[in-house]
């Protein structure tokens, strides 16, 4: 059994305000609990409140926390400097993620806390912060965490957390290759099914997941104007989820221009699309505070 709680569901930039009260304005951060493990998926601004909640729950007990960062764009790392458990020397924090194009993950996270940007340096946090670049799938006791490179204008990873029975996939900031390689695909003299082949590898990574936390950045209409920005139209995410036989899809990484009513509409559209594709995937909108128990 895994328990998933959303602390930040927004993409791109934090969007507090009356129009985002229900789904929330904080950027990407998801807590996953299973057994004694505390797993955090992304370190967007929602991580601040998560840290406060952990301190309340474990006021003095030393914690080991595993944080998996999809990529180092601001909306996925900005909460880390405000994550108070990382300042307590009794806590051990393992941070995992991809390297940058020409900088190590360690360097990128250190630069984020350079004194020109933030008053406290990374070195002033707990001495037990360990930064690991994901070079291979990892095992944490009974859990395995697999990774998969996504199609985004940064080196960006999806993660699949499994205890051997329950599988949760976190896959945001991904554009279907059928979108970005469309020019090549239209050329009949090249391998026209290559984008499909690459997207099928992604579907394989999602296969039979009990929960997919996947992006819902654009509607199909919006995507026409945003092709090449590294995000998906809702249609393709739903189609992939259905093809992968995903049990539940949490629409996540809401676009900053989408207010609560708009996101409601996208959830409805996702449900209709699921029916259209003859799927059984249950679609829900990820909102701050939502807890999903994955049996």
């Amino acid at each position: 059994m895994m328990k998933v709680r959303f602390w930040g569901t927004r993409g791109s930039i934090a969007t507090p305000g009356p129009s985002t009260m229900r789904y929330g304005g904080n950027t990407s951060c998801v807590e996953l609990r299973t057994g004694n493990h505390i797993i955090i998926l992304d370190a967007g601004t929602g991580m601040r409140e998560l840290g406060n909640s952990l301190l309340k729950e474990f006021p003095s007990q030393p914690l080991t926390i595993h944080v998996f960062i999809s990529h180092t764009h601001w909306d996925h790392i900005q909460g880390f400097p405000f994550f108070l458990p990382a300042y307590q020397p009794q806590n051990t924090i393992h941070l995992y993620g991809p390297p940058g194009r020409d900088k190590s993950l360690d360097k990128i996270l250190t630069i984020q806390m350079d004194s020109d940007y933030f008053p406290v340096e990374l070195g002033a946090m707990s001495p037990n912060i360990h930064i690991h670049e994901m070079r291979e799938d990892i095992t944490i006791d009974d859990l395995t965490v697999r990774h998969f490179y996504l199609n985004h204008p940064a080196l960006c990873l999806a993660y699949r957390v499994s205890d051997g029975r329950t599988n949760v996939v976190y896959a945001t900031d991904n554009e279907p290759y059928q979108g970005t390689l469309f020019r090549q695909a239209q050329n009949p003299s090249t391998a026209s099914d290559f984008p499909t082949y690459l997207d099928e590898k992604f579907i394989e990574f999602l296969s039979q997941a009990d929960l997919l936390i996947g992006e819902a950045q654009y509607t199909t209409e919006e995507y026409k104007e945003k092709r090449g920005w590294g995000h998906s139209p809702l249609e393709s995410v739903v189609r992939f989820a259905v093809q992968a036989n995903v049990k539940k899809f949490a629409l996540f990484h809401h676009d900053p221009v989408h207010d609560d009513d708009f996101v409601d509409g996208m959830v409805q559209e996702a449900k209709q699309l699921t029916g259209l594709y003859n799927g059984t995937t249950e679609c829900v909108g990820a909102r701050e505070g939502l807890e999903i128990v994955v049996p």
Partner: peptide
């Protein structure tokens, strides 16, 4: 690469 983004 199959990634066709300008930053890459």
């Amino acid at each position: 690469s199959a990634k066709s983004y300008k930053p890459d």
